[in-house]
Computed example of a mutant assay.
Amino acid sequence: MTAERGTEDVDEVDIGLHSDTARAIGFSDAVFAIVVTLLVLDLRVPEVAPGGLLRALLDQWPVYLAYVTSYLYVAVNWLNHKGTFHRVRCADRGLHWANLGVLFSVALLPFVTALVSRAVEKGDAYDERVAVTAYAVVGVVLSAAWLWLYHYLSRHPELLQAGVTSRFFEAERIRAALGVVAYAVAGLVGWVNVPTALVVLLLLPLFYGLSSNGTYDLRRRVRRRR
């Protein structure tokens, strides 16, 4: 009787601490959708005199560049999120907090996107440096959030799907750490040369998009092409 009660207590504790990932994924998808919607709101119709619409639209190129860069960044983070939770069997409180850290950082993208587009559009060199550096800082924070998430999963293999080892997320920590360094460098470069920093900020999401299913999958695709 005592042994049976002990087993029931363990089961109840396990149920209380662990849950499926459906709510976390659903909530995260909603946040990503809202962030993408907020990015679109910065694409505004210019108020101009008749005959000046084309010139006004062309003058807004910084807004378009900032939108494309941030949209790619959000899309890449969604793909990374999808690839990560596809390998997760259940979630505990620590994983939920790590996931919320990622979502907190993603939600900052519309703000820094508007900063960059407005600063470049107005043409003030100092404001451009400040805005690009702020964008890079958010990139550092977001990469650090992913590093926290990957580290947590690498230390809790009981949360992973069958067949997924903690070594997968140990390797992913390197990819996230690379993002911390790369965005920090982009911020420093942006304080000196804004166009170069913008190119770096545009290329980084492309790299993370190609490796969104993990560095192992990226290496395997490269080997196949050889």
Results as ranks from 00 to 15, higher is better:
T215S: 14
H96T: 09
V120Y: 01
A171R: 14
R23V: 05
A162V: 04
D92N: 10
L103Y: 00
P110C: 06
T69I: 13
R93V: 08
L57Y: 08
R55P: 03
A30M: 04
V189M: 09
L202K: 00
L39H: 04
N213F: 11
V200H: 02
A24W: 02
S212V: 06
L188K: 02
K122P: 02
V116W: 06
H18T: 12
W97L: 13
V116H: 04
R87G: 11
G209Q: 06
R224D: 06
A30L: 02
A3N: 13
E121P: 00
W148R: 12
V185I: 14
Y64Q: 06
F207T: 02
E170W: 09
E47I: 02
R224E: 15
L218I: 07
L202G: 13
V48S: 06
R226N: 10
D29V: 05
V120F: 05
R225Y: 09
Y64P: 01
F168T: 12
S28I: 05
R44K: 13
A22D: 14
E170K: 14
A119L: 08
V181T: 10
L39R: 00
L109C: 03
H156S: 08
G187M: 10
E172A: 11
R129Y: 00
R223Q: 07
Q161S: 05
E172T: 09
E128T: 07
A56I: 06
V130K: 05
F111A: 11
F104N: 01
R221A: 15
E47V: 04
G179A: 05
V13P: 01
V35Q: 07
L79H: 07
A49Q: 13
A162W: 11
G190Q: 03
R118G: 02
A91T: 08
D124N: 09
Q161D: 03
E4T: 13
T37I: 05
K82M: 05
V189Y: 07
C90H: 15
I34K: 00
V140W: 11
T196E: 11
P195G: 01
S143Q: 12
V13D: 03
P110R: 03
D59I: 04
R175H: 12
S212Y: 10
A114W: 07
D20H: 15
G187F: 12
V63M: 08
D9C: 06
G214F: 04
R118T: 15
V180C: 03
G51R: 10
R167K: 03
S117F: 05
G6C: 06
Y67D: 07
V181R: 07
T2E: 12
A49D: 12
A197K: 08
L210G: 02
V106H: 04
P195F: 11
V112D: 04
S212D: 01
L43H: 06
A33F: 03
A22C: 09
G187W: 11
V199A: 15
V200L: 15
T37A: 12
V31N: 01
L54P: 04
S19T: 11
P46C: 08
